[in-house]
């Protein structure tokens, strides 16, 4: 898949933002006043920035409201609802915390559920796609959720939780990569099934339907060199998990915490770049771009 900056920014930032809101909703940390304002501002900023970024790739952003109509079947629509619900509920909750010094626990709980629900629905947008075997796996939601929660904990200064969650997220990430590399082969879809010609012999793409490019090739057929991918994975893993854990293990220091957060975000962004760039859409088979 084309690793469009809009989707990378969206999933990275909104994951982090909603992860924070989740913790804030549960009352970790239980803050008020300016501190609360600062934390909520960051959380809302990240979530909203992510959501805004996600509209960049829309052909008709002015019609984006229509995306709320299909919650019965569409994960994207559900994501929209969850996000709005989370933001509204957490907004009220934040008002209480910041201005009224009130922590409406129930509201926080509901907001937390919507927040993490948003991350889950986002993950389901990808998970549901059979056309992309690397995503179409039970590990995709845990991957999104664990990273979101780890990031949220990290940002909310929940050091112990963050340590545990980062560790879990790291393990999920490793599992995800391991499984992802085998996903296309395991899906049973190949040029033989794509064309129905498999039983007749070995199928090879000959002439493409056109000599130039097209939407499908630009959007779905991104090929990352294996070496390049390996290098990026190491970087993503170090930045997203190893470095933050190391920094958290050091005696607490605001600079370290900041560095840990920045490192984590950069690492997650790299991981997300890989998430898209390495995802093999089966349409690539038709173009002979997925042959081994």
């Amino acid at each position: 898949m084309h690793p469009a900056p809009s989707v990378i920014i969206f999933t990275t930032l909104s994951g982090l933002g909603f992860g924070m809101l989740f913790f804030l909703g549960l009352g970790y940390p239980a803050v008020s006043g300016m501190t609360a304002f600062a934390l909520f501002a960051i959380a809302f900023g990240l979530s909203v920035a992510g959501l805004v970024a996600s509209t960049f790739h829309l052909g008709h952003p002015e019609r984006a409201w229509k995306a709320f109509t299909q919650w019965r079947s569409s994960w994207l629509s559900r994501e929209g609802w969850c996000a709005v619900a989370a933001l509204v509920v957490m907004g009220l909750y934040a008002i209480g915390m910041i201005f009224l010094d009130q922590r409406w626990q129930a509201l926080g709980l509901i907001g937390a559920v919507f927040s993490i629900g948003t991350v889950f629905t986002t993950s389901m947008i990808y998970t549901q796609l059979k056309s992309i075997p690397r995503w179409n796996t039970a590990l995709t939601p845990p991957m999104f959720l664990s990273i979101s929660l780890a990031g949220g904990a990290l940002m909310c200064g929940q050091v112990r939780a963050a340590l545990v969650l980062l560790l879990i997220a790291a393990l999920v990430q490793l599992a995800y990569w391991h499984q992802g590399d085998r996903a296309l082969a395991a899906s049973g879809t190949d040029l033989g099934t794509a064309t129905g010609l498999g039983p007749r012999g070995k199928v090879r793409a000959f002439e493409p339907p056109h000599t130039g490019t097209n939407y499908l090739l630009r959007e779905f057929v991104h090929v990352v060199g294996r070496k390049h991918a390996r290098k990026l994975r190491v970087i993503a893993f170090l930045l997203a998990f190893v470095l933050p854990i190391a920094l958290l293990l050091l005696p607490f220091n605001h600079v370290f915490a900041l560095l840990a957060a920045l490192s984590h975000v950069a690492g997650v962004a790299a991981s997300r770049w890989l998430f898209f760039a390495q995802a093999e859409h089966v349409v690539g088979l038709y173009y002979g771009k997925r042959q081994t």
Binding site: H57, G59, H60, P61, L76, L129, S131, Y215, E219
Partner: peptide, 18 residues
């Protein structure tokens, strides 16, 4: 249509083009 592209993502056959 808002042009989100998700339907094209979901089509295994590459039958949709923005």
């Amino acid at each position: 249509c808002i042009g989100c592209g998700l339907c094209a993502w979901s089509c295994p056959y590459g039958a949709r083009e923005m």
